[in-house]
Nucleic acid binder design. Structure first.
Lengths: 243, 243
DNA sequence: GAGTGGTCTAGACCACTAG
DNA sequence: TAGTGGTCTAGACCACTCC
């Protein structure tokens, strides 16, 4: 872990736990450099990360402060860059359950071979999980993972956290994710496990997640009830050639 | 415009127009530094921007190359960080029309006052536009803008491009956007102008867009037909405390 | 071994904000 | 005027890839 990443992690933690409150000005870059025994450039790189995430903003001549958008969230809202979307915050607000509807090892379909860059006879896990919050279905997660990239998955891990297993037990670092979001009509499966009618739309997030070294390890589709929270993001606008 | 931004723009242009093709390795940072008469750090900052956007990737010891995800797009897909979502690419693939359904100046409602940080008696524009592609309705755009921030809007501008007016005529720089995405049931208005039935869901993107100096200038809701393309994004995962 | 990107340093000048 | 963040430079060492 690089120094600027560690510093970004610490600052992020302090923002989330409220040490630095909304609109509050952080110590100056010079002070932070001194505090963390590093150079101003390294501090700037850490701050840049948090600016990209949208949780802090800077104004020249004034300072760097916590963005006000941090707190305007309903409990169901999820930031697009959160791991898989279910937060500890939600856990603390009620009862959050994880039901394994399906778990098998099989050979990958063509689309899975392409997305995960695996061969026809390299086995993958197929996992379907239902997340239930306070006895109301929240989402359905359809996940495919290559066995040789993430070995040793079993039901115990699915009941707790796959990501914790990957990062802590396998000691792998997670990189970027490519995501697609769209609205969809409910399937029969959705109607059953999300408790929705044919009039209730579903929000689907498809993603391929990569490790730091660019190896894809997860291809998943997560289907949310349309009335259980939004997906949030901060982004920079770009592409002058657009309207 | 900073040097690293200019360089990022040039590189981005070369990737989009195909000068640098998919998977192709870009010149090394040292070569780029020489070519653009600048330092390696400045080049790295430009490259970092494009990495955040997800259009290039780097591997230590190997080089920096164009990401393969750049081309896997249907013509309706839109990157979440594109201006408002309608691309020149779409224009080149068929007939794209913009119908103004509503245009007035009025006082802002409470939610609009809050989102746009304007007072009760500071007027705003209310604009509703329908975008039609090859005679099929694609999306509905409900936009609110403060008159004193973006003066001089008229129907001619709405027919072409609001963003071009803001950047080129008013010479303002556009900053970040806060977005929320969710699925919704169609309203009567949607059914009429998106040509959908009560069984066809709608994908809504709500956004507040800011200028570089943090002044909000647009609060809009864009409603898409569910079968007309996905929203795409690349993101870093973060927050170790999530599952 | 030569070349690549990843990281970090020390130092500088500027534009902007505040009092 | 003092302090802030924005930008840029020159230089360094490392880990990694490829030959």
């Amino acid at each position: 872990m690089s120094r600027y990443n560690e510093i970004a992690d610490e600052l992020r933690k302090k923002i989330i736990d409220g040490t630095y409150k909304e609109e509050q000005v952080l110590p100056s870059q010079a002070e932070l450099a001194k505090k963390y025994h590093t150079s101003r450039i390294t501090i700037q790189k850490a701050i840049d990360l948090l600016k990209y995430e949208g949780i802090i903003k800077s104004r020249q001549g004034y300072g760097t402060f916590v963005a006000s958008s941090v707190s305007r969230l309903s409990i169901f809202d999820r930031r697009v860059d959160e791991y898989l979307g279910i937060s500890k915050q939600l856990e603390s607000k009620g009862k959050l359950e994880s039901n394994i509807l399906h778990f098998e090892i099989r050979f990958p379909a063509a689309i899975e071979q392409e997305k995960l860059n695996v061969k026809q006879f390299e086995p993958v896990y197929q996992i379907i999980r239902q997340r239930v919050f306070n006895d109301e279905p929240l989402l359905l997660e359809h996940t495919i993972m290559p066995v040789h990239v993430i070995p040793g998955i079993h039901e115990g891990i699915l009941k707790s956290s796959i990501y914790r297993y990957i990062e802590e037990d396998l000691d792998l670092e997670i990189g970027i994710a490519e995501r697609r979001i769209h609205a969809d009509k409910p399937t029969e499966f959705d109607k059953k496990y999300l408790a929705c009618t044919k009039l209730d739309p579903v929000l689907e997030v498809d993603q391929v997640v990569f490790l730091q070294d660019d190896i894809p390890f997860e291809y998943s589709k997560t289907r949310y009830r349309y009335d259980k929270g939004d997906i949030l993001m901060i982004s920079r606008n770009r592409y002058k050639q657009f309207d």
